[in-house]
Nucleic acid binder design. Structure first.
Ligand SMILES: [Zn+2]
Ligand SMILES: [Zn+2]
Ligand SMILES: [Zn+2]
Ligand SMILES: [Zn+2]
Lengths: 162, 162
DNA sequence: TGTGAAACGTTATATTATTGCAATCAGTGC
DNA sequence: GCACTGATTGCAATAATATAACGTTTCACA
């Protein structure tokens, strides 16, 4: 099992999260012969400002802080699509929002733990869970392409307060 | 494990699906002292015309067929919200669409198998899977309130053709 | 330096969902 | 029956999210 729940829900050195995400982004772009343009990097940095999913129009509003100028919706959506395509960012469908992937390219369950108190969202990958899910799906006669698991509840930090 | 994949993906007597859904709706409304008004019933019937999720504005466009007159978006959304609240309908977040629940009130995994060829979508409930998922979530220190699992791929019927 | 594909700018529009308030309706107690 | 009350619906406007279409610029590569 792989998870970033420690970082997502507790005080930590978030600069390391950002640094790792950017390094990984550069690495994966190079590997895919794709370009991490200023706009794409600015969007990625903005998404990585927290462990909370960010909406496209929030990105649109706040991008000038990172980019020095404003852009139009298609530009933001193109950057998001690019980052999602490369596996650097996930779309959280129930929130219509986007979240940086803490471990691009590694074992994935597309499993997200969304705190509905503070909004912090962790990602978990679990091989055993994937196997159980695949088996359930297979029993239904279904050919499995992609999956997405969104859990809402209380993160450890918020649960402690209540 | 409970599933409606047989019905969802193959030829069957769909009138039975509709009849069961309506009977269940009446039953649950009575139990909750809620009213299955003509609008709500028409929306439920429309959603149950197939095993494919239906968008809110598609419902809006087609509702006159069932209701004899047209309505405005808030009316449709209110009816949908009511049906979702009662567990008679599920929202498929990745499609922004709504699907009738084949077994309201029973064991739920909120697990949907969406065929991206024909659009037919089955629902599965699996206690073992729920347990595995709950355990994974618990290990991350998260307090689990609700879940939603959306799988895309090929249904048995479409897989056979390819 | 040319050249083609990728990236971006710009305008407009599509799609999905909600707010706020007034009018109406259904049941309840008298 | 009749007033009261909360639920439901009508209606107009608007918010929030996402995409289409097309021209221009940029950039890797030859
Ligand atoms: Zn962090
Ligand atoms: Zn990820
Ligand atoms: Zn059916
Ligand atoms: Zn269901």
């Amino acid at each position: 099992m792989i998870s970033n729940s420690r970082a997502a829900y507790h005080l930590h050195d978030h600069r390391r999260c950002v640094g790792a995400a950017l390094a990984e982004a550069r690495h994966r772009c190079a590997a895919a012969r794709a370009r991490l343009t200023p706009i794409r990097e600015a969007v990625l940095r903005l998404i990585w400002e927290s462990h909370r999913p960010v909406g496209a129009y929030q990105i649109l509003r706040e991008l000038p802080r990172h980019l020095g100028r404003s852009v139009q919706p298609p530009t933001v959506y193109r950057a998001i699509d690019f980052l999602v395509e490369l596996g650097l960012v996930h779309r959280i469908a129930t929130l219509n929002a986007y979240l940086g992937c803490p471990f691009p390219g590694r074992e994935h369950s597309e499993l997200f733990l969304i705190c509905n108190q503070c909004g912090a969202t962790a990602e978990v990958g679990d091989e055993a869970l994937n196997a159980a899910l695949a088996e359930t799906v297979r029993k239904a006669g279904f050919r499995h392409h992609s999956q997405r698991i969104e859990i809402t509840g209380l993160c450890p930090a918020c649960a402690e307060q209540s």
